[in-house]
Simulated assay, not measured.
Amino acid sequence: MPRRRIAAALASAAIGLTLLTGCSDDVSCGLDQCTVTVQRETNASVSVLGVEAKFVSADENTVTLDVGGEQIQLTKGQQAVEVGGLSFTLSSVTQDAVQFEVAR
């Protein structure tokens, strides 16, 4: 019997891992900073450091996000934008995705 439980647990873990790796958005966090990558799709969103950040639009150097109901514009190479005690900085913009940093 214990072997069946272990096999079932391993199968469940493998399915959960497959679902996680199939996710198109990516959040990687350290102690007080996260790197976020979201797909350039309408309504793509991610929860990071306690706030919801939604992708609104982008061109080659500027990204507009909705952060906690407030729209902000991030420009590549520019200073961070402060919202709700967090700093948002644009890292990169490609045809498929945008990457930004969020820090406390």
Rank of each mutant, 00 (worst) to 15 (best):
R3L: 12
L10V: 11
L10E: 13
A13V: 15
I15C: 05
T18C: 11
L19D: 04
T21I: 11
G22A: 13
C23W: 14
S24D: 14
G30M: 01
Q33A: 09
V36S: 06
T37N: 07
Q39H: 14
Q39K: 12
R40G: 09
R40N: 15
E41D: 09
N43Y: 12
N43M: 14
A44G: 15
S45L: 03
S47K: 06
V48E: 04
L49I: 06
K54G: 00
F55D: 02
F55P: 03
V56T: 05
V56W: 00
E60C: 10
E60Y: 06
N61H: 15
N61L: 13
T62N: 04
V63A: 04
T64H: 10
T64V: 10
T64N: 07
L65Q: 10
V67P: 08
G68R: 13
E70W: 02
E70H: 07
I72R: 08
I72M: 14
Q73H: 10
Q78R: 14
E82H: 08
E82S: 12
G84I: 08
S87V: 05
T89W: 03
S91R: 13
S92W: 01
V93D: 01
V93L: 02
D96C: 00
A97D: 11
V98N: 03
Q99P: 10
Q99D: 15
F100P: 00
V102M: 03
R104Q: 09
